[in-house]
Computed example of a mutant assay.
Amino acid sequence: MRPLRFVAIGDSLTEGVGDPVGEAWRGWAALLAAGLAPKDAPVEFTNLAVSGAQSRDVLERQTPAGLALLPDVVSVVIGVNDTLRCTFDIHAVAARLDQVYAAFTAQGAVLLTACLPDPGAMLGLPGALGHPLARRQRAVNTVVHALSERYGAVHLHAAQGAWLTDRALWSADRLHPGERGHRQLAVRFHALLTQAGLATGPAPAAEPEFPVPTRSASLWWLATAGTGWVARRCTDLLPQLLTLAADEVRHRARGTSARLDLTASRAVASALAALSVAERPDAA
């Protein structure tokens, strides 16, 4: 029997950061893989996700490798790292995601996507610093929503909900789920796939397999690794973010903050309009 092939591409979220097993990361995609088919049916799972990856990395590196594996199911969860770079361009992000989604669905793979939380809110940044990042993440999520519908993806709404404020679901760095949070993502994806008749195996367990890290262990990880992880991804953004924050303050003082939202919305609309308007691959 040919095994069901599941390929996961993306960044640290899909790599499994926050859900350590031994010396490696596991994560939601690995947990989901075990429930895609009955226990007596083989599943080949390949995780190509890399911490720090942006949409360019997914398009240029991970997608060719993923296509070569001829997956039956592929997850493409990406975008947060793009928002944390001074080079952020919603037109470029939209164009890259369009190419990635099109390539996998043209091969007949079931596509899994998700909208993601605002990193500024997760980090607890103050309004003037947080609003620009929130605006960027909303732009990415809007693009992902639109393209997921275009390509018939199984789409998980993960940008909102009580799970974002439940500290028991998140690791010490506030950006990555802990084991319980990764299991939450796996359970929710499995439910969507089961509803669509695409997952026939047992649902992943919602309860953690391993003890929750102690507070001291979490703080040690944050001090020795987590803070560095965040810093490496935000260093080039900081000067620009300060400029954006100053602009935010000026508009707030003038009562014209709505103009910033309107400009961002127009950029998203323009990015989507620039993409191919071809019918979804399954439309005939």
Rank of each mutant, 00 (worst) to 15 (best):
M1N: 13
R2K: 15
L4G: 00
L4D: 01
I9E: 09
L13A: 05
G16H: 11
V17D: 00
G18M: 04
W28R: 05
A29I: 00
A29H: 02
L32T: 05
A41S: 14
A41M: 12
P42F: 09
P42H: 06
N47H: 06
L48H: 05
V50F: 03
V50S: 03
Q54D: 03
D57F: 10
D57R: 13
V58E: 02
V58N: 03
L59A: 10
E60Q: 15
E60A: 14
Q62L: 07
P64E: 04
G66P: 00
L70D: 15
P71M: 09
D72A: 10
D72Y: 06
V74L: 08
V74F: 02
I78G: 01
V80Y: 07
D82A: 11
D82H: 13
T83L: 03
C86G: 06
C86E: 15
F88Q: 03
H91I: 06
A92V: 14
A92P: 00
V93C: 12
L97V: 12
Q99D: 14
Q99C: 09
Y101P: 04
Q107N: 01
V110E: 05
L111T: 04
L111D: 03
A114E: 04
P119S: 03
M122F: 11
M122C: 14
M122P: 03
G124P: 07
P126K: 07
A128F: 10
L129V: 02
G130R: 15
H131R: 14
R136H: 06
V143Y: 08
V143W: 10
V143P: 01
V144K: 04
L147S: 06
L147K: 05
S148A: 14
G152S: 04
A153C: 04
V154F: 07
V154H: 06
H155C: 09
H155T: 02
H157Y: 09
A158K: 12
Q160A: 15
A162G: 14
W163A: 15
A168L: 06
A168E: 14
L169E: 01
S171C: 08
D173I: 12
L175V: 10
H182C: 00
H182N: 10
H182F: 02
L185F: 15
L185K: 01
A186R: 04
H190L: 09
A191K: 12
L192R: 15
L192M: 11
L192I: 11
Q195W: 13
A196V: 01
A205S: 12
A205I: 06
V212M: 08
R215V: 10
S218I: 00
L222V: 02
A223L: 13
W229V: 06
C234K: 00
L237R: 11
L238D: 03
P239M: 08
Q240F: 02
Q240V: 13
L241A: 09
T243D: 11
L244T: 04
A245Y: 08
R250P: 01
H251K: 13
H251S: 15
R252I: 03
R252H: 11
R252F: 02
L260T: 05
D261V: 14
S265H: 09
V268S: 10
L272M: 04
A273V: 05
S276Q: 00
R280V: 00
P281H: 02
A284P: 14
